[in-house]
Design a binder for these strands. Structure first.
Lengths: 233, 233
DNA sequence: AATGCTATCTTGTATATACAGGTATATACA
DNA sequence: TGTATATACCTGTATATACAAGATAGCATT
């Protein structure tokens, strides 16, 4: 039950970019070169390149080749999971901290929004992600207590969604929406912004085959995100 | 120089969904059925299904099949091009109007942002899209005059980006970013909202092989958009 | 020097094929 | 009735192959 080969190639290429072995503008091995290097068929190598291009990490031009995308001006909003992870990928993890403002067992007053039975016990944590002492994200996360019993014992400042999710089920998916909001007083204070500073709020419902696992609200001031660029027909 | 076969299949399937021949929850022809119906290989049929699923129009489950996704609660933000088009797809086009507030030949004071030579002549139009007399989107669009000479002669209330873009070049792409903003006074007035109502602003740079074609800013109050849901590894 | 051609590398599209693994239904058995 | 088992169908992964089409460098011709 090993991971697919195209995933292996994606990981390898991502590493070369993160470690600096491949820099923005650099040419990435061509499909045929990857065939030789990884011993796969061209279509498999191609899939790895296509998916990385879809994420915005690579840029491909017919006839020319595949290149590491210019330092993405902004993150791709379809990929956002956790500012901490994002920052880590940008390479200044050293200046990144996470503050856990709150972590308690709450009752499911928001059961309806999560599609749960009323009264289902939930863990609620509020995190603030900082870089160079500047707050970048306010994160409010509700997790179904039954599915992640050790949630509160973890170091919430370090745990990423994938960490506690992988403990729940092999198969997870997420539903995300964005909207523009004004920060609540608590959010404005935690982010050190004025009450008039508009923010992007991303609401993410994560679920496995057992149902909803968590509901997270990510609020960021001032960030700007790249969107996909489909132009069909 | 016909369009690819997978695109043909996508169009056909999209039509069946838009016309109601296929409803949410309905089973879509399987890969092998499409092979028989369109006379293509399974991989080609597969590509059509995969891309429609990526857009959120279909849902696929291994072993089960492919189904028309439940009426998407909100639009996919990666697909936004024009609220008018969006509304048309939702099926209440009758209540939709577009007001052209302004349409002039402007000079390229924003040349830098578009990557153009200073002084390059641009058309500037400001449109407001309404549904049931309620403003849904404020659109400010700058178009390189040289590449769309007849731009001002068109019925701006009807023209979609694809209309004037197709006149320019066969190959176009777009770059999009989102951010949260407070509306400018003019925007607030046009949208009939208060100055404190946070809005999503989508900035879209469209370009062809000849360079940047247009720069559009779409401002919507109160809308909420679906995001893609990648969960890798 | 400028033009045009060709060889070669790249990605894009398409086909045919094979097997793995998930899902549901029908069948046979206890 | 309830439980296995076999089967058919579906999507997921992977290979091998072919040709189309864009980009580039070098060479030959004008």
């Amino acid at each position: 039950m090993s991971s697919p080969q195209y995933a292996r190639i994606k990981v390898a290429l991502r590493q070369r970019i993160e470690t600096g072995a491949l820099c923005p503008g650099d040419r990435v091995p061509s499909e045929n070169q990857l065939v030789g290097e990884f011993g796969v068929s061209r279509m498999t190598a191609r899939r790895a390149l296509l998916e990385l291009a879809e994420e915005g990490l690579l840029e491909r031009t017919q006839g020319l080749g595949t290149f590491v995308a210019d330092r993405r001006p902004v993150s791709s909003i379809t990929q956002i999971r956790n500012i901490a992870e994002e920052i880590h990928q940008r390479g200044h993890c050293h200046a990144c901290r996470v503050l856990a403002l709150e972590a308690v067992l709450a009752d499911a007053t928001l059961a309806a929004r999560m599609g749960l039975a009323e009264g289902e016990p939930l863990f609620h944590s509020v995190l603030v992600h900082l870089e160079n002492d500047q707050a970048l994200q306010y994160e409010s996360r509700h997790v179904v207590a039954q599915l992640a019993p050790a949630y509160l014992e973890q170091d919430l400042a370090r745990v990423t969604p994938s960490a506690y999710l992988s403990a729940v089920a092999p198969l997870t998916e997420a539903d995300q929406t964005v909207e523009a909001v004004l920060p609540s007083p608590a959010q404005a204070e935690a982010l050190d912004i004025g009450p008039d500073q508009p923010c992007l709020k991303i609401t993410r419902r994560t679920f496995s085959h057992r149902g909803v696992v968590s509901l997270a609200e990510l609020v960021h001031p001032g960030d700007r995100y790249r969107l996909g660029s489909h132009i069909d027909s």
